[in-house]
Design a protein around this nucleic acid. Sequence first.
DNA 1: TAGGTGATGACAGCCGCTGACATGAGGCGT
DNA 2: ACGCCTCATGTCAGCGGCTGTCATCACCTA
Lengths: 191, 191
Amino acid sequence: MVRWQPGTRERLQEAALELFAHRGYEQTTATEIAQSVGLTERTFFRHFSDKREVLFQGQERLVEAFLDGVAAAPDGATPMELVSAALESAADFFPGERRDHARLRQSVIDQNPALQERERHKLSALATTVGDTFRARGVPEPAATLAAESAITVFGVSFTQWIRDGEDRSLADIERTVLAELRSLAAGEAA
Amino acid sequence: MVRWQPGTRERLQEAALELFAHRGYEQTTATEIAQSVGLTERTFFRHFSDKREVLFQGQERLVEAFLDGVAAAPDGATPMELVSAALESAADFFPGERRDHARLRQSVIDQNPALQERERHKLSALATTVGDTFRARGVPEPAATLAAESAITVFGVSFTQWIRDGEDRSLADIERTVLAELRSLAAGEAA
DNA sequence: TAGGTGATGACAGCCGCTGACATGAGGCGT
DNA sequence: ACGCCTCATGTCAGCGGCTGTCATCACCTA
């Protein structure tokens, strides 16, 4: 008999998503999530800094995908080329198999303002990090911040479209379309 | 003798800002804020849906400024012209006299992640609302959302610059500069 | 003068979250 | 084989955010 099972964090995350989806975020207590996998509330809060984090922890790899994309871009790339490279790399993070899981997760987030706040915060932190790498590559302000925020905006819009009912294009395809739209918008073209 | 003083909400907001700035957000309890103006915690939470809101309530007029700007734009304006009109109108909301107050308030927000989350959420809601009016004026998706998010991004970057130490340009001036930068970025110009 | 209105107070209680300390299985050195 | 150390977990007490419920009582209105 082992004293504790491995993968505690992941089991808690799975259980939490299921309970949130089934019963609602606010109607589910941290104690219930913990007990559903045989643990106590105290252990839950040792793994996650707060109740919302159980849905968000583990996105470091997405951040890395963005940064890797930027790092892979050739020297002398324009800011927009860096944005494009980051988006392409980020898209790899969401293959078709993840679409259903992403839909479920997003439906939970969309139903609770507190979770939406956290999501925005994470995206915002991502934009800040991407902006840092742009600056590290010599992009001056305010271009670096604008480019990074634009990258995240395009990502967000594209992701929302990617999980829409009936959508079957890849995230990368959608991103290219949305980015092109942003370009023509900024160029002042009429709607 | 009046039973209650008028302006309860405003007194609570002033007291809260002062306490937060002086002692820190987390170190200040809702009870303390309420008591500092002669009220109880219960009354505090009748005026504000949660502790953070005491710093954010009353921004409806900023939202209106954005929307009024859009409404004032001529028929047939391009999305970028709508963005420009919204930004110009929003800038009126922050005359030079408000700069110091904005600085104090922002310094409090910048020191607490929970407050940053709320701020992002408000900006995000603003982007959504602006996007709605763009759509109502016939801008299709995803251009409407992209334009609205870009407007908020430019506003955010400009506002941050506006309250920087030593900055003395008007918010409207800064916004024009930042918006121009975004245009040339999207046009693919090198940094 | 009676009754209605509406902001506030009082109180109990849930839940998120934390610090402090105890427990016990597995690994490791001797 | 023995004892020690590590470290994820459990237990417990407690604070603060937030809510529902009911009472209070100045002011207004008929």
